[in-house]
């Protein structure tokens, strides 16, 4: 079994099966939660990729797992518009660590 998992809409993630990733096609938050839990408790998995649309449904779980498990969870961009979620998470982390938002303050 591959130790890279990808969670997302079937039509996007199915291509990665030929690349050799472990696929978790999901449609709603319940399925996504199950898939996340399966990956994180599996013990073999190293990286989880999750598409933006699905990540938005289970953002709390992702944040929790990122903190407690050694697995790297990475959010893939939305295929239509700019993904705000990954940048938002980065901004949150920066605020937590440095105390102020040093990345985007100038732009606003």
């Amino acid at each position: 079994m591959s130790n890279i998992a990808i969670i997302g809409e079937k039509e996007i993630v199915i291509g990665f099966s030929l690349i050799g990733f472990q696929l978790f096609p999901v449609t709603d938050s319940v399925e996504a939660k199950d898939a996340l839990e399966k990956c994180t408790t599996d013990g073999n998995c190293q990286i989880i990729f999750i598409t933006d649309n699905i990540a938005q449904l289970v953002i709390d779980e992702i944040e929790q797992y990122q903190r407690i498990s050694p697995i790297s969870i990475c959010i893939l961009p939305n295929r239509i518009q700019d993904s705000k979620l990954s940048i938002e998470m980065l901004r949150k982390n920066v605020e937590k660590a440095v105390g102020t938002d040093i990345l985007f303050r100038k732009e606003e």
């Binding site: 890279i4 690349i19 050799g20």
Partner: peptide
């Protein structure tokens, strides 16, 4: 038929 039986395996 195309996607269900991959032969490639990618690990890190």
């Amino acid at each position: 038929s195309i996607f269900l039986f991959p032969q490639r395996k990618t690990t890190v």
